[in-house]
Design a protein around this nucleic acid. Sequence first.
DNA 1: AATGAATGAGGGTTCATTCAT
DNA 2: CATGAATGAACCCTCATTCAT
Lengths: 222, 222, 222, 222
Amino acid sequence: MNEYSFRLWHDSLMSAIAKKSRRTATREQRKQQLINATMKCIARKGMGSTTLGDVAKEAGLSQGIVNLHFESKENLLNETLRYIADDYKTQFNHVLDRSGPGAAAKLHALMELDLRPSILDRRKLAVWFAFWGEVKSRPRYREICEASDEYYDDVVRSLCDEIITAGRYKNVSGAAVATVLTSVTNGMWLSYLISPKRFDRLSAANAVDEYLCSIFPQHFPL
Amino acid sequence: MNEYSFRLWHDSLMSAIAKKSRRTATREQRKQQLINATMKCIARKGMGSTTLGDVAKEAGLSQGIVNLHFESKENLLNETLRYIADDYKTQFNHVLDRSGPGAAAKLHALMELDLRPSILDRRKLAVWFAFWGEVKSRPRYREICEASDEYYDDVVRSLCDEIITAGRYKNVSGAAVATVLTSVTNGMWLSYLISPKRFDRLSAANAVDEYLCSIFPQHFPL
Amino acid sequence: MNEYSFRLWHDSLMSAIAKKSRRTATREQRKQQLINATMKCIARKGMGSTTLGDVAKEAGLSQGIVNLHFESKENLLNETLRYIADDYKTQFNHVLDRSGPGAAAKLHALMELDLRPSILDRRKLAVWFAFWGEVKSRPRYREICEASDEYYDDVVRSLCDEIITAGRYKNVSGAAVATVLTSVTNGMWLSYLISPKRFDRLSAANAVDEYLCSIFPQHFPL
Amino acid sequence: MNEYSFRLWHDSLMSAIAKKSRRTATREQRKQQLINATMKCIARKGMGSTTLGDVAKEAGLSQGIVNLHFESKENLLNETLRYIADDYKTQFNHVLDRSGPGAAAKLHALMELDLRPSILDRRKLAVWFAFWGEVKSRPRYREICEASDEYYDDVVRSLCDEIITAGRYKNVSGAAVATVLTSVTNGMWLSYLISPKRFDRLSAANAVDEYLCSIFPQHFPL
DNA sequence: AATGAATGAGGGTTCATTCAT
DNA sequence: CATGAATGAACCCTCATTCAT
């Protein structure tokens, strides 16, 4: 897969909408347009400095537009978080379906997904971290994130368990490996967010591969 | 090591200061007191909802106090970030010095540090993530975090390299292992922040141990 | 006379209109429907909190409907005030025509009208007071109210003069009695608006009767 | 008593305050200053069009000043209503104390008070009616007004009862006379508010006198 | 050094009004 | 005639910052 910039990613929708007359976009389209604008703003200015005016301007619409469609800023942010969670889930499931056959191939594909440019995009990561930064004080954010995480963890653990059973690996628990794998992904995102220059996708991918190879040698040969 | 609560952690400083007459606390003590109050507020209300008024009230001082000592809110936050970075570094170095002998023992001690209650504290983590959430839009935060990360990465990589050399491990790069190790720590912090109930310190520690054991079997036997 | 609820009062009109197809109500009917909705809203939420959106919703029509029929909110309110003034005048004149014979009987009937449930209705009174509350700052309201008042005052004074002449009362001026009578009515409305529990229609009617009896003893015997 | 204009009435306080340095007025003085400004604004622009910005400007202070001292607009209005109620009560009680001896003299003095220029001032009346206009939809306003009214009604009824007992008047109830007297006052205020030109203080006073004379002839001779 | 009243810019939100359909 | 999405000015309120004390 080649490099999709963040811009390309969600502007595809927006430009389509923008071409329609201002007064004719459907409610759902308009909400999506505003969510997209919100993500752009959060990525550029940070969550704390993103105002509804910024979002409206980014969307090319008028001041009151967000309250018209989302009632409140809080709502907009909740739905934005839900959107990025859904968006990730879609990609995750897509990869899960298309890859394989076999648990090992699927596991590898999932790990690779998290380092793909469409995910490992500093603008997207900035949005994720912006929400994580408020998780402690906003129960709603925590709930949404938790539901998300639980799902991925379960899937990854199942795959690991399957591999362990198949390979009769000893001294390894599926849960432990799953914990390391999902954690390592999130941790790498942070590294990339903080040190984009120093971060190297290939090295990161290799590090993951080495780990898998070391822990499941039969399934991930050198 | 026994459980240090967050409260204990930084109230130790504050109470000492509070006992001094209000008017005689030195500039440095007062600044520290305000930084402590800032961390408490960020943990409780989130970065975006923490006002200078909140900080002042938390410190039991008056409205204008922060500007008096830090000139601006921006300064206060920068110095708060620097403080938590320094605080972590102190613990890190302390562990590095006291543990051992040997790279493996040191590495293990460092990994264990990150799961200790004094570090794995949701209030502290909330502060870290609050800053990381703004890293993309605040270059100053990024710089501070980057400097921090670079140091830990270097130390961990050195230890790994030493172990690899000593054990003549093949097909393993120190950089890759270091990347996984530091990443896994950050990722686990996120898990704990989001799902404190589901997170289990021991399992997490075991997962790390399994990893080390699998990759450096001679140095980390079962 | 039995109790007419406020609901009955103006819903009679509205239901008739509502039964017509939405698209065929005449301009006049639609305007009346909106005026009725306006009164309901003012009574329930107060003048300051009544929005055009509220009025439209109350009427079961769409957002922009008021501007379509009244051009502006100001117009709607002016016409609403004119409507309640006309509505009162209609009842007033009706009583004037049907009662009698004789000035005393008419005067008594008019005084009784102002305490009838169809008038002494807190929802209607709320509308009157809402407009009176803006009289000072809205010349248009003042003019409409003044025209109204002048008419009633003239009628009442004429009746009083007639009674005075007929009874050869000394030391009494028709104008003075008329002033007291019209004032007392408005004042009682205020009492009822403020203290509906404490207010007693019968006592109020008796108080008026005692007054008439004391000032015009021949015409209003015990 | 000679004519006190509304301006004179409450500017006496304000000018004193304004002379003090902006930063030194006591909290109580500042609140009073803002209440005065609020009354001016309500009288001039109406309750619905009075913004906190207007009040601040009228007081010669800055935008945020009202929220600093009253927390919310609602609070400001509640306290303003309470203030005019207290202000009236003070005058009422003062007259009650100073007049007499005898119930009749006191009653007459109280009735005269309500027609004095210091009370019968369109700007003040505009404020009263502005609040009465919202009584139906704002329970708090109703409560404050009710408490006020109850007190005056009780005092007036007591005086009437005393007169009735002393004069052995038959066919007259103190409650009824009190109702008429207090109502007539409020009704006259409305007349003056609506038709300042047509309203004549002397005629109004005479109308009240005629009434008293007619109902309590021994105590209020011609 | 410390206070806390005051400022005023800027935030989220509301709502009368417009206009394409 | 009627709709309702969209606008944008103006509202209330918050809060970083200033400054007289």
